[in-house]
């Protein structure tokens, strides 16, 4: 028997029940199932849910794969490049628009517009723009940059963009000294040049969103604060740097979290722009998961990689959620 008083008191809970149930199944239940798959022998089209022996063998194999190591490196590098660029440019645009200016609404919409488009649509276009035979590289000829370089006896500029296998600023030497076992890495730890165009495309897509988030924050900073800063004799640049940007820290954090969860699971854009890239220079865990699960039928391996992705997200999201809700409840 359900106690009617309990129901009356918790009517709110009753309302939430369908959503909570769906979340329990579709989020928590499925994550548990994926984790279970990652521990099984299921690596062909024939479903085999017996547990592997040793249990963690799939994870051990995966972490030893040069491809997966490259994926981890790429995620790290891409995240840093992308968040740095998107936050920097988004903040810059917000500051430029943080004043009375004709066409403010127009600029705001124009910069936010890419956010409305799908990564597939823009990826298809960006693939053209970063085609080494044409695209941006044509500008080096059109603008005469290459002619100048050649007349100075230098090589003309024609970067390979997403087809360039080079990894610059390699830190393998450092790692070999700093980490026990650091010399066993099978890949170059550095910045894969091919990731740069992808970070640019992602920045183009999301910097407008960052701008909108900052504009919200800037709108909340009163005239008094600005005036007070000005009276202190601070120029505009210093006012932003030492007063306003520190005040925007909460927004920076929320924005960075949202961008982070975009970058950790980035899939469509890379899929449409370059695929795995030369020597896995643009491969990311999401593509690894997709290929292992839906092409090679190595279901346990794909599931294991997806669990690693989830853990990476949790490392950032869980402390954020806990912090946010703790500070709210007190």
């Amino acid at each position: 028997m359900v106690n009617p008083h309990w129901l009356v008191r918790n009517k709110g809970l009753l309302f939430l029940l369908p959503s909570l149930l769906l979340t329990a199944i579709f989020v928590y239940g499925f994550i548990g199932t994926s984790f279970f798959y990652s521990l099984t022998n299921w690596r062909t089209l024939a479903v085999d849910l017996s547990l592997r022996d040793p249990l963690w063998q799939t994870y051990t194999d995966m972490l030893a794969m040069p491809r997966f190591q490259a994926d981890l490196r790429n995620t790290l590098v891409f995240t840093v490049l992308f968040i740095g660029l998107a936050v920097g440019i988004g903040l810059g645009l917000a500051i430029l628009l943080d004043r009375q200016i004709a066409g403010r609404g127009f600029f705001r919409s124009a910069f936010l517009f890419p956010y409305a488009l799908s990564f597939i649509v823009t990826g298809v276009v960006w693939r053209w723009i970063f085609n080494p035979e044409t695209g941006i590289n044509l500008f080096f000829d059109i603008l005469g940059i290459n002619q100048v370089l050649e007349s100075a006896g230098m090589r003309p500029l024609s970067p390979g963009w997403t087809t360039d296998p080079e990894v610059v600023l390699s830190v393998n030497q450092v790692l070999a000294h700093a980490l026990p076992g650091g010399a066993t890495f099978q890949i170059e730890w550095g910045i894969p040049v091919a990731l740069i165009p992808i970070a640019i495309a992602a920045t183009w897509q999301l910097s407008g969103f960052v701008m909108a988030m900052y504009l919200g924050g800037l709108g909340g900073i009163s005239r008094q604060v600005r005036d007070a800063a000005r009276i202190d004799g601070a120029g505009e640049f210093r006012m932003y740097r030492s007063v306003i940007i520190p005040m925007l820290t909460p927004i920076t954090i929320s924005t960075a979290i949202i961008l982070l969860h975009v970058s950790l699971k980035i899939f469509d854009l890379v899929f449409a722009m370059s695929g795995v890239g030369p020597g896995f220079a643009t491969d990311v865990p999401a593509i690894f998961v997709f290929e292992m699960m839906f092409k090679a039928a190595r279901y346990n391996l794909g599931a294991a990689a997806s669990i690693v992705m989830l853990i990476a997200s949790c490392l950032i999201i869980v402390p954020y959620l806990v912090h946010t809700f703790r500070s709210r409840e007190t």
Binding site: F26, F30, I31, S34, Y37, V289, A303, A305, S306
Partner: peptide, 9 residues
């Protein structure tokens, strides 16, 4: 969550 982690189930 990255949706890859729930895809197969």
């Amino acid at each position: 969550i990255p949706y890859q982690a729930i895809l197969l189930p």
